[in-house]
C-alpha cells in the first residue's frame, strides 16, 4: 500500500532522515518508535506532503506521492493525526467533525457518519456544541482521530497519539485504533514510548538519528536489552550515559 525507499530529508545542514526505507502493507498495523529527534514526525510529514524530501521515493499503490500538495494526498485516502492533535479549538466539536468530511463527495453519507461518530465517541456527542479547545487532552485526541476517520481514509497516520495522555486514556485510544484496524483501516503509528505500540502493532520499525535501526515483528524486541540496543544504540548492557 505504501512504499518508501531511500528517503533523505534535510532541514538546512541537519539531516533529519538518511536513506530510510519502509513499507506498509494493506491492513497492517505498523509502529515506528524512536527517541526524540529521530526523524519520526519528519517521516510522517513527508508522506502527507508537508515536508519536501531531498531524494528518495514515496509511493502509494504504485503512484508517486512526492511533490504533490497535501490536499491531494488526503484525497487519496491518507489521513494524518498530527502531533499535538491540531484540532480547531475555537470551533465547536461538531464543526471539527464536519471538517473531517471536507474531501468527501457522498455528502449524505458523510452527514450520517458525523452523527455515527458522535455515538461511537459518546463524549464528543455530549459536547457537540461546545468549543473543541475546552475538551481535555484525551477527548481532543478522540476528536482528532474521529475527524481523521470521517475522511474515510484507507491509511491512517498518527503522530504520537499517546503524548501527554494518562495511561488509561492511552489504552482507550489504542483500543479505538485496534478496532479501526480490524475494520480494515491500515494504520501507521509513530511513538516515542514503545510500550503500548509493541502490544498493538503487527510490525515495528525503530528509527534512530534519521536511520532505520530495526525492523521486524515486535516479539523480536521483547527482551528489554534488545529494545535498548535498537532504541539507543547500546552495544552491550545498558550503561549510564557519560
Amino acid at each position: 500500500m505504501l512504499q518508501i525507499a531511500g528517503l533523505d530529508v534535510r532541514y538546512g545542514p541537519i539531516r533529519a532522515l538518511r536513506g530510510v526505507s519502509i513499507e506498509v502493507g494493506r491492513g497492517e498495523f505498523v509502529g515506528i518508535v524512536g527517541p526524540n529527534g529521530a526523524g519520526k514526525s519528519t517521516l510522517l510529514l513527508s508522506i502527507v506532503g508537508m515536508v519536501r524530501p531531498q531524494s528518495g521515493r514515496i509511493e502509494h499503490d504504485g503512484t508517486a506521492l512526492m511533490g504533490r500538495p497535501p490536499e491531494e494526498i488526503v484525497r487519496r485516502g491518507i489521513a494524518l493525526v498530527p502531533e499535538g492533535r491540531e484540532i480547531f479549538g475555537e470551533l465547536t466539536v461538531e464543526e471539527n467533525l464536519r471538517l473531517g468530511t471536507t474531501i468527501r463527495k457522498d455528502r449524505r453519507a458523510a452527514e450520517a457518519d458525523v452523527e455515527r461518530m458522535m455515538k461511537e465517541f459518546p463524549i464528543l456527542g455530549e459536547r457537540r456544541r461546545g468549543q473543541a479547545g475546552k475538551l481535555s487532552g484525551g477527548e481532543q485526541q478522540q476528536l482528532a482521530i474521529a475527524r481523521a476517520m470521517l475522511g474515510d481514509p484507507k491509511l491512517l497516520l498518527l503522530d504520537e497519539p499517546s503524548l501527554g495522555l494518562a495511561p488509561l486514556i492511552t489504552k482507550q485510544v489504542y483500543q479505538v485504533l485496534k478496532r479501526l484496524n480490524e475494520a480494515g483501516v491500515t494504520i501507521l503509528v509513530v511513538e516515542q514510548n514503545p510500550k503500548r505500540i509493541m502490544k498493538a502493532a503487527t510490525r515495528l520499525y525503530v528509527l534512530r538519528n534519521g536511520q532505520l535501526a530495526f525492523s521486524g515483528p515486535p516479539e523480536a524486541l521483547e527482551r528489554a536489552e534488545d529494545l535498548d540496543r535498537a532504541y539507543f544504540g547500546f552495544n552491550e548492557k545498558a550503561r549510564p550515559l557519560p
Binding site: 508537508m50 464543526e95 471536507t102
Partner: peptide, 16 residues
Amino acid sequence: RASREDEVAAKAIGVN
C-alpha cells in the same frame, strides 16, 4: 474558518 485557526492543519484535512 478552520484555515483561519490553523492553515497547516486545515490543509492536512483536505481544505483548499
